[in-house]
Amino acid sequence: MINKIVRTPAEAVAGIFDGAVVMIGGFGEAGSPIELIHALIDQGAKDLCVVSNNTGSGHVGLAALIENRQVRKMVCSFPRSANSKVFPELYQRGEIELELVPQGTLAERIRAGGAGIPAFYTPTSVGTPLAEGKEIRVFGGQSYVLEYAIKADFSLVKCRAADRYGNLTYNKTARNFGPVMCTAAATTIVQAKQIVEPGGIDPEVVVTPGIFVSKVTEVGSPADESTLVAEDRRYPW
């Protein structure tokens, strides 16, 4: 019998090892799997390369993982925001690496990683500093830059509903990077607001087919990151 359900976030992230490449879903706080990230802080794996659009806010979630010095390198499109202090400070002190990737190229590199495509050409960033040193090729008179796929050892994703097969649906714009990250990791770990019986999600509306998912854990009342940031909470509590 297939049953991808695990009881707790701690159990879900137990296997994450030092030096792993970890994709973390979310666009700002929307879709950020904060309970899985906090479980990873408790678990303590370090020297991680984290692929995520941003670098977190305040001192909780992804920002707390970085502040706990578990992240060697960030791959992201927008590493600063109104409430991000942890990453900018470490970056300016030269204590964390950054690979800056245009947002669409980031999504496509992850998609390619999940689809067995090793690399692709795109016009995005041609003629800019982000294309320097990269292979350029001309198709039909237009220049394109070669970008490589990204694969991960683990993806951490938040969704709205899941079943024991790992079929997922999401909530509004919290979907963002989740579906592509699910496809691109050797082990995909999901926190779901609700776990339903097989058939509880209409097959017509499944967004992530269960084949892309390894583990699902239910977090019925996920923390609201902006509330925690507004209260200046810090993890570990």
Partner: peptide, 9 residues
């Protein structure tokens, strides 16, 4: 801190 987001795309 360099940040590009979706502008280049």
């Amino acid at each position: 801190i360099p940040a590009v987001g979706g502008a280049m795309d």
